[in-house]
Write a protein that binds this DNA or RNA. Structure first.
Lengths: 217, 217
DNA sequence: GTCTATAGCAGGATAGAC
DNA sequence: GTCTATCCTGCTATAGAC
């Protein structure tokens, strides 16, 4: 029906605009008037469709954020191909590529990481859901992929710490963009992103002991 | 004078309590009533001493945060000793130790990193000051220390990216404590912190290619 | 310098017309 | 389903007594 169609659109518009604003400014700093203005709809629409501001926020994670995380995981898996024992180098490369140049647009990527960084610094109900449904399973998959290539005395916990450290770097270069730009004195353009991917692969694989770049070529 | 002394104390108490609250909840989510209640003083005191809530927030960075950052840098330098060409291993170890078990108490460290993580995600005037006055000079010092030991073809920019990545990991394990605890399924106690230091040293030096632990022993 | 009281406004939520 | 008008809470900031 036409009516249903229009409802969908308003609801979707609210979700889209609210997500952008929550990512930029955080939950408390955004107000409903701002959201509805951006979504070009009436002030009462948020309460009509979502019941409350709080629930709109949670719905953004339930629908938008989770869907994007799934897209990222699918992209990662398909970029690995199906040859089952992948080298750490191949896995790290696919990870860095997925999270910095993968299926998301620049704006989407930024938003995605801003939202999760905010949740990690100050958890709400959303974080538990994300960790249980997305992060833990993904870390488990990565662990299983990496374990065969690791030295025998690496424990499961140490492997998880390694994976978290890679994510920490990816997260940082996405949520702290302004700081990075100012420190490195360079705009966050396509060229810089390419450099970042290279860097993240190298650092994750070899740390400071550095670029085995020659061997990779 | 007694009066001046008491003023100082009230002002200090406000700074202390406000910092804790801003770190936990973010600027917008904290209100003056909460701060003055925690500082056990009158509602009007914040405006009397700081002029506005906003200026109280900035003062926390100007006095408290910067002072702590200085303490951390001093601690780091003195733990290196004065032998000028330090190995990367020694530098990384001193860094990890300083930021995870250095001069700050657990609560101070957590607060310190929560505040900077919030600023990085959503910069205010405070960030520019911090970057210019503390972060850039510190990165410069670290670069100069590390450069001699790096392979010839490492550019200055790549070196800075390496340093930022180390900080990203340190920052993550401090500001995202709740997420880490839930993922790793283990409390953030002294034993875990020791493990974290070990991990950060190892990962920063060798990345996934892993623990040259045997050689270090 | 400290307090109470309150001005003045912003924001979440809802009632009720259309 | 969409809109306007409005209630009500809770906030910052300040005036003015002590």
């Amino acid at each position: 029906m036409t009516k249903d169609h229009e409802n969908e659109l308003t609801k979707e518009r609210i979700l889209n605009e609210a997500e952008i604003l929550f990512a930029q400014k955080g939950y408390k700093s955004v107000n409903i008037r701002e959201i509805t203005k951006a979504a070009n709809c009436n002030l009462a629409a948020v309460n009509y469709y979502f019941g409350s501001k709080k629930n709109l926020y949670l719905d953004i994670f339930r629908s938008r954020w989770m869907a994007r995380a799934k897209r990222l995981q699918e992209f990662f898996k398909s970029s690995l191909g199906s040859i089952s024992p992948n080298s750490p180098a191949k896995i790290v490369e696919a990870l860095a590529y997925t999270f910095l140049k993968g299926p998301l647009s620049e704006e989407e990527r930024h938003r995605h990481h801003q939202l999760i960084a905010r949740e990690m610094a100050q958890p709400t109900e959303a974080l538990e859901m994300i960790i249980d449904q997305m992060i833990k399973p993904f870390i488990k998959e990565l662990s299983d992929m990496l374990l065969p290539s690791m030295s025998k005395d690496v424990t499961k916990e140490e492997l998880i710490l390694n994976i978290l450290s890679m994510f920490a770097i990816v997260l940082y270069f996405n949520f702290a963009r302004k700081a990075v730009t100012s420190i490195i004195n360079r705009p966050y353009d396509s060229e810089f992103k390419t450099k970042l991917i290279e860097h993240i692969i190298n650092f994750s694989l070899y740390g400071l002991s550095g670029s085995q770049k020659e061997e990779l070529k």
